[in-house]
Design a protein around this nucleic acid. Sequence first.
DNA 1: CTGTTAGCGCCTTCAA
DNA 2: TTGAAGGCGCTAACAG
Lengths: 352, 352
Amino acid sequence: MARDTVTLRDVADAAGVSIATASRALTGKNRVSKATTAHVSRVAERLGYRVNVFGRALREGTDGAVGVIVPVISNPFYGQLVHSLEEQLREHSLELIIADSHGDVARERERLRMLVQRRVEGIVIVPSDASASLDAVAEAADDVPLVQLDRRVEEAPTDFVGVDNERGIALLVNHLGERGATEIVLVASDDTTSAGRERRAAFDREIARRGLPVLEPILDRFTLEFGLSAAGTIARSRPLPDAIVAGDDLIATGLITGLKRHGVVVPRDVMVTGFDGTMLADICDPALTTVVQPFDQIAAEAVRALLRRTKQRDAPAIYSRLAPALRESMSTARPLAPPDTPAPAGDDAQAS
Amino acid sequence: MARDTVTLRDVADAAGVSIATASRALTGKNRVSKATTAHVSRVAERLGYRVNVFGRALREGTDGAVGVIVPVISNPFYGQLVHSLEEQLREHSLELIIADSHGDVARERERLRMLVQRRVEGIVIVPSDASASLDAVAEAADDVPLVQLDRRVEEAPTDFVGVDNERGIALLVNHLGERGATEIVLVASDDTTSAGRERRAAFDREIARRGLPVLEPILDRFTLEFGLSAAGTIARSRPLPDAIVAGDDLIATGLITGLKRHGVVVPRDVMVTGFDGTMLADICDPALTTVVQPFDQIAAEAVRALLRRTKQRDAPAIYSRLAPALRESMSTARPLAPPDTPAPAGDDAQAS
DNA sequence: CTGTTAGCGCCTTCAA
DNA sequence: TTGAAGGCGCTAACAG
């Protein structure tokens, strides 16, 4: 059973100094003689002393915990994000309290309040709704440093770190263009998420810029199921487009699986691209051409923003967009050639 | 700017009662008149009072947090497990502090110590190594309620909740038998995890029981990469077996992808099964026949065990095995018939 | 450089 | 049923 706890008092007594000196020696913040510091440290070590987090927290006003709220932790994309965050936070000796919002605004509000009440050092959140999340997010941000991750509520004046959706979509459309595609359809998230909005806007812009035909997008949610059903819609409405740009890897994976069931062969009949670069891209068949999010960089940047705001509550809001990288794979490996430069099949090199 | 905090003192003053009465009224544990309780509650409400978690924790010795340690949160299997745990814990108003061990024993020890130091209510851990994790796990279990989940260190006398591996493997081998397989190869985890050990033992037993030929297993780790490389090994060493039982969905997915690259067609040339029932099973092509773990049940049982031990530190250790369910899919949809009963192709019904 | 002292906010024993 | 008071463990003035 739990060995009895040794307190600072015990250390002080054993070391023959006052409790204040012991505290100072151990935290190292204030001036204490080298000798006593060493002595106290040794005694503490010997006694197996560990600070009582609650005592310190009560005094300091916060313990070293950061709250992270994502829609669903079981989604591999958020899994990777949380994984990277955990890594970054650990390097700063911060613990990670995790909470699922289930994509539900009420639940999200409840979790935010909980984190604020626990007086976490800060909150990292992937807001579930681009507008409906506003109140709860703003309220929380008022009480504790908060950074929005990946998605954002535009109206909430908080720090934000995420991928450069515009660049990602441009990379994909450009890639498809090189592969000879002209009729490209978007199957993505509706406007409930900022990522959905931004990717759609970027897509429209890119299509317009290239003077490609404008096809009706199919929009719903970032789910496998949606991808599956969208595949049916597309398969039934022949003629097929040259390519489909999916809102994320999950949708793309659903599309590929669904198209297969309808006898449509990817990439021969239609090319498909994803977004995120999760493990799903490697698993589905054909493997998915996608843009890979720089998970570690994003997490590092988010933590940096959080710590910065901890020190300076009223610093101007950070708005950081990190560039994704194109990863070409089989789902777009079609030997179609652009008007001028014929590209050999299976060539990994990127034509310009 | 954080609105200034209202404390119990404020509530008491505003309500015209002592701080003790206010406390009693709000926690509801002790006897207070109905009237004052209502009154104090109303005042607290009006003032927007929220207990200070640290004050209470300092007093009570613990805050309402539970630590969860998994090898890698980005692995969909652990993602689902954590998701279910979060759900269960929330229902008991417990927060979830998450930590990755990265499958590394030293890291695991460090995280365990951190959780103990934070005086969490309890710890749920998927130990990374069936034997090397012993010291750290036992040490932590000595200080705080701890339940092992999914995998376990046998020597550590703690509560355990996990899937019934024996039953799962039996379901799979039986299914393959019905499909006419006799030469079945195991591609799974080595003995560093209890899940690996148990599944292997169950497999050997099942093969022996049926008098099937004993083939050399290929063992390593629960990773996609291992599945990929094992596929190469198998593809090169013709003749092919009838079927492959993979240690989990990740390995199975790697196998399927790898076999495809080597021109081996699943299930025509060889059938493949998974284990866990993660989303990967639905995504890979052909979709994976696997046994589905009852995630929610497992999580619920784990939390129940934890709470039980919170109340009674010396209760006898719980050892709970929950039954998985077979989910048949395309990766074993081969119209092979057992000697006596011919089974039609694509039949979903389970022969007995 | 070091010791004394005063809380941080809360719960609970002890009295009334 | 209610109030007064102590103390959980820690850190940061404030003295010396």
